[in-house]
């Protein structure tokens, strides 16, 4: 059952990545690799959060790091810059529910200005959700970009056809 959960998680992440990537017009040859990276990254985050009790921010960072290294490795064969592979693969990890709750608690805060107890409760929820959303997004982009700094010569010549 655990294996099925993990596979399903990867499958839906891959579907989401492929679908969203059409908005940024990627090369056709990149689709299978984007799907693979998204599936591995999201399933990794899912496992860490479900079975190792990791928090969403650290789990996202490690998943993004694996996507970053993966795109460095996979971009080589198809002459694609890393960003072409890793930006679509990161999209399914955007913390949508936290972002939604941020907006929702802000609205409810503004609606309950006359009730001090509710007011505090909604303000607290607003900060909690906003903090989680922002840190996850920042860590996602930092994690995926880190490999560029470590292997910058290789990262900068992925689209070169002639290898030296």
């Amino acid at each position: 059952m655990i294996a099925v959960d993990i596979l399903l998680d990867g499958l839906f992440a891959a579907l989401a990545a492929i679908g969203f990537s059409t908005l940024s017009d990627p090369p056709r040859r990149a689709f299978p690799r984007i799907a693979l990276l998204a599936a591995v990254g999201h399933a990794l985050r899912f496992c860490m959060m479900e079975y190792l009790d990791t928090d969403i921010a650290s789990a996202s960072f490690i998943a993004a790091l694996s996507i970053g290294f993966g795109s460095l490795w996979l971009g080589y064969g198809i002459h694609c810059p890393m960003t072409v592979l890793y930006i679509p693969a990161l999209l399914p990890m955007i913390p949508g529910i936290y972002a939604y709750k941020t907006v929702f608690s802000l609205i409810m805060f503004l609606q309950s200005l006359n009730d001090p107890a509710l007011e505090v409760q909604y303000m607290q929820q607003f900060f909690l959700n906003a903090t989680v959303s922002l840190s996850v997004i920042a860590l996602l982009s930092a994690g995926a970009t880190l490999p560029i700094f470590i292997f910058n010569r290789r990262a900068f010549s992925l689209t070169r056809r002639r290898r030296n």
């Binding site: 839906f12 992440a13 990545a17 492929i18 679908g19 969203f20 999201h42 399914p92």
Partner: peptide, 12 residues
């Protein structure tokens, strides 16, 4: 494609 993607996102 985006419709399917967002539906999968909902599932995630």
């Amino acid at each position: 494609a985006v419709g399917l993607a967002n539906a999968s996102f909902c599932r995630l």
